[in-house]
Design a protein around this nucleic acid. Structure first.
Length: 449
RNA sequence: GGCUAAGUGGCAGAGUGGUAAUGCAGCGGCCUGCAAAGCCGUCAACGCCGGUUCGAUUCCGACCUUAGCCUCCA
């Protein structure tokens, strides 16, 4: 048994063989910080996080890189719209992204490089690509020549002839061939930019990932794993692969994983459709654990249609686990490592099977006491921090009012004044508190979310 | 139009050449003053059509449908 990963390159599930067992390297495409992060951003970050957890469990050192793209035309546009400078925009949305990811209890990557910190390295890499002979300049742009690079299409399996170019948008005039892409583009003097051998300008979209990877892992090193949303396969990752292979004789990356995108109303989220689900908004009414559970409930390569049903399903299960934990909370919290869970996850991140396994543990908790300790291990391994979530909830509540109302209600119940008792229960309910009469004790909790 | 995926009960989702786990929801019961929780029980599905086979949901082929990409996108 070992780690198996579905490789977009081969379109097969493969045994994971690291380049160097002493240091596994993984890069996952992070966000462009120009707007509030949505549930789709969360999904790919979560998938990266899970791979990170699995790799860390097996290998002593894992270098996990998740970038922040803070140079982009969309950022420039956003700055104009909000009438702020570019830095303010990127800072603001980076902070939101970070805090959203923290809420979802994702581990910090080993590196979180920002493009603006890597401009000299980007210029260096472009220079290397130019000397490899796969570029040309046109209207001030440094272009990558996809026709010259004969392996182009290796990742996305797209053959140039079969593709209809410019179906939905005109091919830019500066391109020799429609699939060619920009490595460096000119900026106006008053625009965001840097001096370079090709004039004042800024990097194109794809080059920053390649540069940051090479800089962090070493220019002649092969990345073990590269991932992101499957909408990035073409052209972004295809382009990265092409330019990356021009920089070194060694292969750019061995394993590529791609998560399915999140759909809302069975369509990809987009501002024009108005179906973008922001993490911020979800967190207002839903516990981060439930959101996370919902994301885990489908396999990462499947598309995930985000619906209230999916979310409610998760809330119900998470609530059940919360109840279980709060009932057991006085018992010692022992975590018994469970290899079965680990091997389920090592098989190409089969989270639905993992969640199912956890539910069978819970179901058989009475027959086998170690199941509870295994259960604690499992939710912890997945980063479903239910235990912490419960303690947060308890500290948030205004104890006195609730306790007072419960006292009053129990007096009423003793007097068999059930109308009054039920009224008080309704009042508690309006305070988001649920109660449960357990023998002669009444216990309460926040309504599940 | 091309390319890439996918179609299992109300929802989510395993899985298999011999008719299919599990969770949630639903329904019934126990419990409760009534609830809630918990427990027990229970209904319900393999897109369509051919082929291979003793037998296919599982293999092969066509078709239909859906989504994504071909422009920026996690």
């Amino acid at each position: 048994m070992g780690i198996k990963i579905y490789n977009t390159l081969s379109k097969k599930k493969e045994d994971f063989k690291p380049v160097n067992e002493d240091n596994i390297t993984m890069y996952v495409c992070g966000p462009t910080v120009y707007s509030n992060p949505h549930i789709g951003n969360a999904r790919s970050a979560l998938v990266g996080d899970l791979w990170y957890r699995i790799l860390k469990n097996k290998y002593k050192k894992v270098t996990y890189i998740r970038n922040i793209t803070d140079v982009d035309d969309k950022i420039i546009d956003a700055a104009k719209k909000e009438n702020r400078n570019v830095n303010e925009i990127t800072e603001k949305y980076y902070k939101t992204y970070k805090s959203n990811m923290d809420s979802l209890t994702l581990l910090d990557p080993t590196h979180e490089p920002k493009v603006t910190d890597f401009i000299p390295r980007i210029i260096e890499i472009i220079t290397k690509i130019i000397s490899s002979g796969y570029t040309y300049t046109s209207e001030g742009n440094v272009m990558f020549d996809t026709v010259k690079y004969t392996k182009y299409g290796k990742l996305s399996k797209r053959i140039a002839k079969e593709m209809l170019d410019g179906v939905r948008i005109d091919v830019a005039s500066y391109k020799k061939s429609p699939k060619d892409f920009i490595l460096w583009k000119p900026s106006h003097k008053d625009q965001l930019g840097w001096d370079s051998p090709w004039g004042y300008g800024r990097p194109g979209w794809h080059i920053e990932c390649t540069s940051m990877i090479k800089e962090i892992i070493g220019h002649d090193s092969t990345l073990d794993i590269h991932g992101g949303g499957n909408d990035l396969i073409f052209p972004h990752h295809e382009n990265e692969l092409a330019q990356g292979n021009c920089v070194s004789k060694n292969e750019y990356c061995n394993y590529w994983f791609h998560n399915g995108i999140v759909l809302v109303n069975k369509k990809k989220m987009s501002k024009s459709l108005g179906n973008v689900v922001l993490i911020e908004d979800l967190l207002k009414n839903t516990s981060p654990i439930s959101i996370k559970y919902a994301l885990l409930s489908s396999h990462y390569r499947q598309p995930l249609n985000w619906t209230s049903e999916v979310l409610n399903n998760s809330i119900n299960i998470v609530t059940k686990y919360k109840n279980l934990i709060s009932e057991m909370k006085n018992n010692e919290k022992e975590y018994i490592p469970d290899n079965e869970l680990v091997s389920i996850l090592e098989d190409d991140l089969n989270t639905p099977a993992a969640l199912n396994y956890i539910s069978t543990l819970v179901k058989n908790i009475n027959n086998n006491k170690s199941n509870y300790s295994k259960f604690l291990f499992c939710i912890d391994f997945l980063g479903l921090n239910i235990v912490d979530d419960i303690s947060n909830v308890i500290s948030e509540i205004d104890n006195k009012i609730v306790e007072q109302l419960i006292k009053e209600r129990n007096v009423a119940r003793l007097k068999k004044n059930f109308n009054k008792a039920d009224l008080i229960r309704k009042k508690l309910s309006s305070l988001n508190v649920e109660i449960k009469d357990d023998g002669n004790q009444t216990v309460w909790k926040f309504k599940p979310k």
